[in-house]
């Protein structure tokens, strides 16, 4: 990505300007203090025993299962969209490109209302789904749909950038050597775009894991079935704070992990470019 190539305008020995430094320190403290508080309160001696708690275990399992399916569906259905948008010109392409970014800026709870109005009992497709014997409400499938809707655009964005960044000459060379369209895609385009795709997947996973608003509306909340980590944190804020704090700490650690992976991937791309 170009942005990271911009050189830092650093003069050795230059002193930091006072006012910007003070304001920056204030803002950085504001951003970091809550995270620190979560880790301090969450990572106590009680952390491991609390993680064994059945509500916590169920939440982790539901979240891992649903986000796993969400990632599979994302790869399967969003990769082709990204490829088409990056490589082909067709009527309505610009509009489609813009519209597919919509879930990124749409409030998740609004996404939940939209899913209800489409796939719910009284929704647009409700009667049809009922005839087909499909009942999505309160099922893990509803959790996956909420995650897919809100998170897939993150993968779409990065994957599109990846397909745009692939050196077309490499593809041409493979083609002159007699490779077919699918072979070129599988053996040249995909490996070259892979760091981008992986970064997109990591971002999508993080967003899916954090999904709350759409899920609570569309899928409900039942331990072991639809109650993901975030829903579990919310309902654990009841009589017993300990599971909420432990799960929050887990989420903070996972978020750090996600950031680290994204950084490493970006750095490896810089080197290979």
């Amino acid at each position: 990505m170009k942005a990271s190539r911009v050189r830092v305008n650093s003069r050795p020995g230059a002193r930091l300007p006072a006012l910007p430094t003070a304001l920056s320190a204030l803002m950085a403290t504001f951003l970091l203090l809550p995270t620190l508080a979560l880790l301090l309160r969450g990572l106590t001696a009680q952390f491991w025993p609390t993680l064994q708690n059945s509500a916590v275990q169920d939440a982790l399992r539901v979240s891992l299962m649903t986000t796993g399916v969400t990632l599979l569906l994302t790869v399967l259905f969003v990769t082709p969209v990204a490829y088409l948008l990056a490589r082909y010109r067709f009527p309505g392409r610009t509009l489609l490109d813009a519209l597919l970014d919509l879930p990124i800026v749409l409030p998740p709870v609004v996404a939940g209302v939209g899913l209800l109005l489409t796939f719910g009992h009284g929704g647009l497709l409700g009667p049809g789904l009922e005839l087909a014997g499909v009942s999505l409400a309160f099922s893990p499938a509803a959790v996956v749909m909420a995650q897919l809707f809100t998170s897939a655009p993150f993968y779409l964005r990065t994957a599109k950038a990846g397909f745009l960044a692939v050196n077309r000459e490499a593809e041409e060379a493979a083609r002159t050597d007699g490779a077919g369209g699918r072979q070129v895609f599988l053996h040249v385009t995909l490996p070259l775009a892979f760091p981008f795709l992986l970064e997109g997947l990591v971002l999508t996973w993080a967003r899916a894991l954090g999904e709350f608003g759409a899920t609570v509306l569309f899928a409900g909340s039942l331990q072991g079935k639809t109650r993901t980590i975030t829903l579990s944190i919310y309902s654990a804020l009841e009589s017993d704070l300990a599971p909420a704090l432990a799960l929050s700490a887990v989420m903070v650690l996972l978020s750090f992990g996600v950031l680290l992976v994204v950084r490493v991937l970006a750095a490896s791309r810089e080197q290979s470019a």
Binding site: L116, G120, H121, G122, A137, A219, G220, L222, T226, S235
Partner: peptide
């Protein structure tokens, strides 16, 4: 038969109002 345990009673009523439950 419980398919969802909501965090407040108005959310419980909403699920019937929407026809989901």
């Amino acid at each position: 038969n419980v398919v969802s345990e909501e965090t407040n009673v108005r959310q419980v009523a909403l699920k019937v109002q929407l026809g989901e439950a």
